[in-house]
Amino acid sequence: MRLLQQFINYFYRYPLAKHQYIMHMGGYSTYNTMIEDQKSMIESSSLLPPVKSYGDGLEIYFLTGKKYLYQTLFCIHSLVKVSQQQFRFILIDDGSFDENLINLIQKQLPQSEIITQETINKNLAQQLPLNLFPVLHQKRKEYSHIKKLTDIHTINGGWKLVLDSDMLFWANPVELISWLQNPQRPIYMYDCEQSYGYSATLMQNLCGSPIPDRVNVGVIGLNSKQIDWVAIEKWVAALEKKEGTSYYLEQAISAMLLSDSKNQVLDELQYIVNPTVQQSQRKEEMLHHYVDRSKILYYKNALDFVN
């Protein structure tokens, strides 16, 4: 039975899913062009000038690895190009770091901090021991996005700003800089639509507070000391038991963490998720987070930084 399931997946479900994705992205011609642009972006990441990380700079965290470092480098480069601030970049190993990748990071981001799996495992053992948090440990194996919570917010310290890598800054992000200089409450950006993967009713029943609208975790600042890991363990188990697994689990959990807080929400006219073609060409807003079909625009726009 298992062999049959693997056969069906390999010869039917996976090809069908990829075909549907290609059609969603505009067809084979558009998709192939996008892949070529992605390759160009990857190759061009080595041409970006090194960006120094400052020990006393404003701290920004990235979960990254072999598949995403080129995006992280472009995001960082776009930020320092539009801002006069000094930043301290902390890169969290998504499980794929090796000696070559670490050497590349040290070359491209001199004096940045690298949090390796060894350190992450020590933090998890201390703060989220396996016997007390079996669900979160299992989700880390199955669902890498949850590491943006578990692997970053078990690092010592309080307020932490976490950025997704697939973003580009086009103007000085004054609101974000102001928050980094004096964080007082959680901060996040609006999504282009509600994307939690779970019903708001279930989420609210579990956390006991109204769920904020359209939380997008491309930009999110939380206080690690205020995170209730026991509650998260229960929430994940209950969400998946009642409504199954979801690609957006980490976003749902983050929205639940924000449910009883007075939050700061970034201006959605300046911090844009899934920019349109017109917005992508204009490049006047502070930040674009390239998701879904805007990935077609992302790889082309990134090359502006090396041309």
Rank of each mutant, 00 (worst) to 15 (best):
L4T: 12
F7H: 13
Y12Q: 00
R13V: 09
M25G: 05
M34V: 04
E36M: 09
P49Y: 05
V51M: 06
Y54M: 03
L58Q: 09
E59S: 15
F62D: 00
K66D: 05
K66Y: 01
Q71L: 15
V82M: 04
Q85R: 07
F87D: 01
R88G: 07
I105D: 03
I115E: 06
T116D: 14
T116R: 10
I120R: 08
L128Y: 06
P129T: 03
P134N: 05
K141G: 11
Y143L: 14
Y143N: 06
T154S: 09
D164M: 01
S165C: 15
D166L: 09
F169D: 00
W170T: 04
L176V: 05
W179I: 00
W179L: 03
Q184R: 14
Y188A: 05
M189L: 10
Y190E: 14
C192A: 14
Y196L: 14
S199E: 04
A200Y: 05
A200P: 02
N205G: 14
G208C: 12
P212H: 00
V215C: 04
G221P: 06
G221Q: 06
N223A: 06
S224Q: 00
I227F: 09
E233P: 13
K241W: 08
K242N: 15
Y247W: 14
L249W: 06
L258C: 11
D267Y: 07
L269K: 10
V273N: 14
P275S: 14
V277Q: 12
E284Y: 04
E285H: 11
H289N: 13
V291Q: 02
D292W: 07
I296C: 00
A302M: 15
D304Y: 15
N307D: 00
